[in-house]
Design a protein around this nucleic acid. Sequence first.
DNA 1: TTTACTTAATTACAATATGTTATTAACTAT
DNA 2: ATAGTTAATAACATATTGTAATTAAGTAAA
Lengths: 243, 243
Amino acid sequence: MKHDFSTHHRMSVATDVVVLTTDNKPLSNNRKVAEKGLQLLLVKRDEEPYNGCWALPAGFVNYDEPLLECAKRKLREKVGLDDIYLEQLYSYGDDVNRDIRGRVISIGYIALAPKEKILLNSERAGKEAEWFWIESATSEWEPDRLSFIAVKDPSVRITSLAFDHRMIIADALNRIKNKIMYTDVGFHLVNELFTVKELQTVYELLLGREVQAFRRVLNDKIIETDQWTDGKAHRPARLFKQR
Amino acid sequence: MKHDFSTHHRMSVATDVVVLTTDNKPLSNNRKVAEKGLQLLLVKRDEEPYNGCWALPAGFVNYDEPLLECAKRKLREKVGLDDIYLEQLYSYGDDVNRDIRGRVISIGYIALAPKEKILLNSERAGKEAEWFWIESATSEWEPDRLSFIAVKDPSVRITSLAFDHRMIIADALNRIKNKIMYTDVGFHLVNELFTVKELQTVYELLLGREVQAFRRVLNDKIIETDQWTDGKAHRPARLFKQR
DNA sequence: TTTACTTAATTACAATATGTTATTAACTAT
DNA sequence: ATAGTTAATAACATATTGTAATTAAGTAAA
């Protein structure tokens, strides 16, 4: 049986982007030290299906549009983000009913950036986009155990998302976790100039454990600059950049 | 601008499978010791475009067919392979003209199996399918440098393949190479019972270098059985299985 | 049936890398 | 000044890895 390249095999293709960053958790009464946390960007859907549900920034790929370009466009349109690190995650299409409207293949992407870089751009747009806290996991992230806590209002804790987006998010987190020690992916979550402590915090949040002798491990991946943190209490920390 | 789930955004989706295995290279005059090599399965296309060209086993996904199911079906139909390890590799759709017939997104898969397991099944079918040698690379595999040498007739060396399949193959090889030390993926390239040397050879072919103290590294991933190789010259080797 | 040869498996030791704790440095707040 | 806090380095113990040497178990040939 030969394929005649007819149209009745054609289906919709979408890109879904998991945007991750880190930020300081608000100071509470019993904590004097600023604690970092992982954040995820979600948007509120304004059409069926899952109207009103929180979801990943996503949308359909145009017929003449590269996949990566579509992911970038969706971030621009829905969140006002531009010029952010993107890598392909996985393609979702084993459940043929994952979208009630018809057959949809989703190409998952991961976007990473330090919060400072994202804030600048996202001021412009991002009406229905919000940041949510993700609790650091000691072992692997599991879709069923993920919950998302609104950064603006910590009393808002959601567990249900549109489509299979919980699975995509868990996959994204586990992918980054598994890569971080063997690749340079962690640098995308800090500024161009960073302290050792800042980078270490990123690693520890993703791994869900402490990393010992971090400076020594990173020694051949970073270059020291002659700049230092200032304005903060206690001894200043040297700023580094990626080698 | 809202998406109306109309049909003019729809496109074709295909799965392309990179089937890898290892086998003994033929003994030549100046080599007394059996040398192992990496092998790749290619099929000869019998329709346009690239009619007559060697290509990866691939084909279009049916509207109601899971992606993984499609990859399995293509291996069955085109090569007669069944029940083989499959993992998703990457999705190709940044070049909108990668298929002259129209917009096609390809979901790449990697299939791994020891040659013995594949031989059994592929006897039944596989008319236009052939194995090709891949030279082990010391650093990373690059699409432009890949050439494929027919196992049946080493004088046949091809460099041009259909579509962007050279890129997909290079990606597959690099993916496995980068994973092999941190995952258990290497076990899929040996039989259920294997000697330490057999497994080590798989690692060294993929890494393009020697691996020292291999037994020690693998110590907590393997279990020794009370079976031994026989029929071969010299001291028998103990057979192990994956823990 | 020795002996040479080859591969398998283990052992021993050196070199390197990592885990852990202690020490020194540099700042702020009192 | 002094206490308190974070940064950075140093020092040492332990674990892991690289490398070579040794022993074991078979075949093939003298």
